[in-house]
């Protein structure tokens, strides 16, 4: 556990995260971003201002005071959107573009896959699928999917 941070955080009435630095400088609309959203989601966060400049680095969320942790967790929950595909229910066809129906950790949804190249291989066995609107769906371990999903996925790989 590192030393307590020298800045302060709170949420204002507009729902924005406000950062107050040690020297009293105030920055509104701060965002918390993960440095390695896929490979190490729980380690390495940065607080950045609306212009993208880094204000503070947080190694682990455990390092910040309890009260802020919920604040930051809320911020992440409302900002991050990378549904993890748990199951591929159906596809409309094996030639792209086609509609995929998937079960994700954010619930069931449909999306359009524009081309096979939108399925990107990350460090195996992870895959990332970008839909026609640019939302990224993650498959953490393609071998851990059920047989039906794997069979569908195989047709596109």
């Amino acid at each position: 556990m590192s030393a307590a941070p020298d800045y302060r955080l709170h949420r204002n009435a507009f729902g924005r995260l406000v950062f107050t630095a040690a020297d009293g400088a105030v920055c509104e609309g701060v965002a918390l971003v993960r440095a390695f959203p896929i490979s190490a989601a729980d380690a390495g966060f940065a607080l950045v201002d609306p212009y993208g400049h880094e204000l503070a680095w947080i190694d682990r969320l455990d390092d910040v005071p309890e009260a802020w942790r919920t604040l930051l967790a809320e911020e992440l929950a409302s900002r991050e959107f990378m549904p993890v595909i748990a199951q591929i229910v159906a596809v409309s066809g094996y030639a792209t573009p086609c509609v995929w129906t998937v079960e994700t950790d954010h619930g069931r949804t449909d999306f359009i896959l524009k081309g096979e190249e939108d399925i990107r291989r990350l460090a195996p066995p992870a895959l990332m699928i970008a839909d026609s609107h640019g939302i990224h769906y993650l498959i953490r371990d393609r071998n851990a999917l059920d047989a039906h999903s794997r069979k569908i996925l195989d047709r596109f790989l």
Binding site: N12, A13, F14, G15, S78, R79, E80, F81, M82, H133, G134, I135, H136
Partner: peptide, 21 residues
């Protein structure tokens, strides 16, 4: 919008009244 998610916020002078995504 951020990362494929759009947010629509309803605000008045005092603060945020609602947000839809």
């Amino acid at each position: 919008d951020h990362a494929g998610v759009g947010s629509l916020e309803l605000l008045d002078d005092a603060g945020r009244l609602a947000v839809w995504r």
